[in-house]
Amino acid sequence: MLENLTDRLSRVVKTMRGEARLTESNTAEMLREIRLALLEADVALPVVKTLLEQIKFKALGEEVVGSLSPGQALVGVVQRELAQVMAGDGSQSGEINLATQPPAVILMAGLQGAGKTTSVGKLAKWLQEKKKKKVLTVSCDVYRPAAIEQLATVSKQVGAECFPSSVDQKPAAIALAALDWARRHYFDVLLVDTAGRLGIDEVLMQEIEDLHNKLSPIETLFVVDAMLGQDAVNTAKAFHDALPLSGVILTKLDGDSRGGAALSVRQVTGVPLKFIGTAEKMDGLEAFDAERMANRILGMGDILALVEQA
C-alpha cells in the first residue's frame, strides 16, 4: 500500500522535473497523492480538505529556486504547512501552565483506554522531577473496575501521593475532598483522573462538565490515542464543546501508527498539542514536536527519498 504511494509519487515528481515554478497543472496530480497520503495516515477527511486548500494556495506561483524541483518545493510546502498547523505559536509544547494560586488543578479527559491514568502518572513524575512540585493525584473513575487501584499503583511508582477514593462516592465529591486536602497540605498540583467516556454519552459528558465547573482547573488536558481514525474529529469536537480544553496529550506513539489524529484534533479544537506518550512506563512522556509529527504523518522518510531520486 505504502510502496504503491511512493511509486506513484515518484512518477509524478519525475514528470515535474525541469519546471521552474508550481502551477495549477503540475501540482494537481501531486496534490491528489498528498490527499491519499494524509487519508492513509488517518487525518480526518474534513481536515484534509481544508489543508489541501491552504497548501494549494501557498504553493501556487511558488518559485522553484536553485536545485529544487517543483516536486521538492511542493513537499516542502506541505511539510511546513502541517508543522505550522500543529505547532501553533509553539510556546506550549512540553509545558504545563501552573500560573495560579496553588494547588494548580489539572483535569484529564478522553475516550476509554486512551491513556489518561497512565498519563497522570507520567505527568506527576515530570512535575516532581522537572518542576520540583509537590503533586497529589486523585481518581474520579468510579466505573472502570480497579481504576482507583490502578491510579494508586501508578502514583506509588512515581512517588506521588494519591488521595484515596472509593466507587460508592460521587466523582464531584471525591474531587472536592481531594482539592480540600491539597489546599490544607500545601500541594502545588492536583492531578484529577477521570473515567473514559464517549463524546455522545450525555450523562457522562455532563458529569465531567460539572467536575470542571467545581474544580476550575488551570489545565484541562484531552488525552488522545494516536491510533485513532476518522472519528477523531467527532470526539474532539464533542469534548471541546463540553470543556474548555487547554492542551492535548497524544499517546501510544511508540507504535507504528502514522498519527494523523494529531492533525485532526489540533485543527478541530485549536488547542495546543503539549506532550506525547512514547512508552507504557512512567518515563515515556516527551514534549510534542510539530516538525517530527509532520514528517511522521507524511511518511517523510519515503517522500524525501523519492524526491532526492528525482
Partner: peptide, 11 residues
C-alpha cells in the same frame, strides 16, 4: 481491536 482505530488496525 479498538473500533476507534484507523488504518493501524490493519497492521
Amino acid at each position: 481491536l479498538d473500533g476507534n482505530t484507523g488504518q493501524n488496525g490493519l497492521n
